[in-house]
Simulated scan of single mutants.
Amino acid sequence: MQDINVSVAEFLDHHGDEIVDAWQRRTFFAGRTGGDCRAVLNGVAEVVLAGRPEDPTAAGFDAIRDLLGEIAMDRIRRGETAAQTAVTLHDLKPPVVELWTSSRDGDDALPGALRLSTALDTLRLVAMELVGGESADLVEERQQLLELSTPVIRMWDGILAVPLIGTLDSARTQATMEGLLQAIVDQQARVAILDITGVSTVDTAVAQHLLRTVMAARLMGAKCVISGIRPQIAQTMVQLGIDLGDVTTRATLADALAYGLRQIGLVVAAADNH
């Protein structure tokens, strides 16, 4: 009987087009070329042929290590967690093993399936080792970007403002809330302004994020006002039935600042030059 490692390697070569086609429809290779799929498949075939499907240091895995790391880290930089990436890598196994078992009915069916399964599990291990080595730095980098994208500005003694730009998500809302609450404590602020002039869209989820931030500021003893609600956003909110409740709103940041000044007992008036 032909060596099982040779049989499996020949199977991967013979059915390469089918496997590449199946892999390109899987999440891990979304947006990648068929050449990337083929390179990874060749690496798997090489470690199987060498009889080292369980060895992450095998030459076949070394040949595709950088490519695997690049694809995995690209997915994580786009917001996917390491656990989610591991799941997408696991999804590469079923189409290969199922194709093998459907094409075999002899004594080599089970041993071959085990070798393929082991090689693809090791493939996932190789990729996740690379992700693990860089993920801590990536998390720190993302946190720094979040902090830079949500600055807390001192507008006046006792008045803070947070200009929000772009899209609000859970992570950014949490960073905004933490930064604002800490600034309220540090500066003993009495008024906090959330300016959404630069927010592209406001849907139900964004409204909930804003309300949570407003409630947190209130618990710290600061009055909160939302400014920068443009006409089109106001119309969208009405159509969606979004209710900001008793939250104070103002059309512009200037209006919100004037409101804040009144709350601390100050009034801005034109200077009398006469």
Rank of each mutant, 00 (worst) to 15 (best):
A207C: 11
L160V: 11
T85E: 08
P231S: 09
V185P: 01
W156V: 08
R78T: 10
R52W: 04
I184H: 02
E46W: 00
D36G: 02
S170N: 11
A258C: 06
A22D: 10
D74K: 08
V126N: 00
H14Q: 14
L145K: 10
R142W: 05
S102W: 10
L244A: 12
V48C: 02
G241I: 08
G221F: 05
A234D: 07
R52T: 15
G35N: 13
A161L: 09
E98A: 10
A50E: 14
G132W: 00
P151W: 05
Q235E: 11
V126W: 00
T197M: 09
D243V: 04
Q84F: 11
V214P: 01
V199P: 00
D272R: 15
G34L: 02
A59I: 10
I264Q: 01
L261I: 05
A45S: 15
E147T: 08
V139T: 10
G132E: 06
L116C: 08
I264N: 01
L244E: 03
L211T: 13
A82Q: 08
L257D: 02
I193P: 03
A30V: 06
G79Q: 03
A254W: 05
M177G: 05
D13T: 12
D74S: 10
A205W: 12
D66F: 10
G241Y: 07
P94G: 10
G133L: 05
T101G: 02
D121T: 12
R230N: 14
D3Q: 13
A222V: 08
E80Y: 04
N5V: 05
R75N: 04
D13N: 12
R172S: 06
D55P: 05
M1F: 11
S117R: 07
R250V: 13
A258W: 01
R78G: 14
F29L: 15
Q239H: 14
Q2K: 12
G166Y: 04
I64D: 00
G106Q: 04
E134A: 14
E98N: 14
D66Q: 15
L211G: 13
A113D: 01
G16L: 01
Q188E: 12
E140K: 14
V206C: 03
R212S: 12
L168T: 10
V44P: 00
L49V: 06
A251C: 08
I64T: 11
D36Q: 09
T201N: 08
L211S: 13
M177C: 09
